[in-house]
Design a protein around this nucleic acid. Sequence first.
DNA 1: TCTATTATTGAATTATTATTCATTATTAGC
DNA 2: GCTAATAATGAATAATAATTCAATAATAGA
Lengths: 195, 195
Amino acid sequence: MRIKEGNKEKDILEAAIKVFAQNGFHQSTMAQISEQASVATGSIYLYFPNKKEILQSIFDMLWNNLFETFDTVTSNDKLSPAEKLDGMIDLLFDRFIENPSLAIVFVNEQNHLLFDDKNPFTNNYQRFLDRGIELVRNGIERKEFWGEVDLTIFKYFIFGAVRNLLHLWAQNPDKYNLNTIRKNVKYLMKHGLVA
Amino acid sequence: MRIKEGNKEKDILEAAIKVFAQNGFHQSTMAQISEQASVATGSIYLYFPNKKEILQSIFDMLWNNLFETFDTVTSNDKLSPAEKLDGMIDLLFDRFIENPSLAIVFVNEQNHLLFDDKNPFTNNYQRFLDRGIELVRNGIERKEFWGEVDLTIFKYFIFGAVRNLLHLWAQNPDKYNLNTIRKNVKYLMKHGLVA
DNA sequence: TCTATTATTGAATTATTATTCATTATTAGC
DNA sequence: GCTAATAATGAATAATAATTCAATAATAGA
């Protein structure tokens, strides 16, 4: 018998995140990923059926993880809807601050996948976003939020904004301070630009 | 002698926008583009040196055009900074409302290009964004806008939000009303979510 | 009508790379 | 130490698709 050495599946996923972030999914080759992961090219296929599923696994992991963590924030009933929204922003930022490459892959590659087929990760992603929607609905009911806001539109508004800022930061983590970005996002989300 | 029939360059560009929107840049083949444009595959190379330059030409056209049009809005001194910002939103929305496919291509493919090489369209794109920044700076000086806002962060914030909403709409123009989206964007940008 | 010139064609070429698979390496249990 | 099983390898295969180019078509001017 022979037992698997180390955790190659994890190595490959982490290598893929780096390579995808650097070159984009379609420009990345299996050879690059295997080199980055220090395994043979063929070995990747012992862990993943094909290149696309590597990408899907990345998002699977990400949203599964985020959804679960987010539950902690929303179930705390001492917090107001606005505070919970802030918590949601924090969660996203904290998740990506550990891994700028993951932020880049997320921003650049997820959309394609979202509209392609029925991807398994889509569920977790949608569940995550839906929790945010609930928060906003609740805030409107309590008259804490502007009543004319369309929930879906707000969802895409704030998520697009956050994504774009994460991307900016991830391309150049030393140039921008993620906490400054975070503070601005929270303020703009709640109060907008006009003084 | 023989003269070129019709405007094949334009036909190819328009075909490419459709094909890129449907399949994404990397999944699109020259054969698909040539079929959509009703020309032979080889003919594309009479007008564009390669596939990538087709994409670049699309953005070249877009931002050149938008920057020039935007000059009209900013040079009108009767308008306040907030009104000018609204005008900028209108301009973007109007440009894409004619061509949802172009919106999809913009959202999905521009980022890759932006960080790849020094693309010629980047200039026009940046010039466009910089005009927006000027507006905000001006609004802050007149104390009309929140003074703590970081100009770069706001730029990425609002642009990410708009992009994401354009994409949502472009994927399904019949389901979402772009004018509702537009109204929500303008409000959220200026006053945020909190009532 | 003929010819020179340029436009267009699409099959052939070429390059790239995802995926396969025959071979080799490793080790758990005996 | 031997063996049976599985892990890992990386060169060979196969498929895809960008790009080229020899052949053909069209037309302006003579």
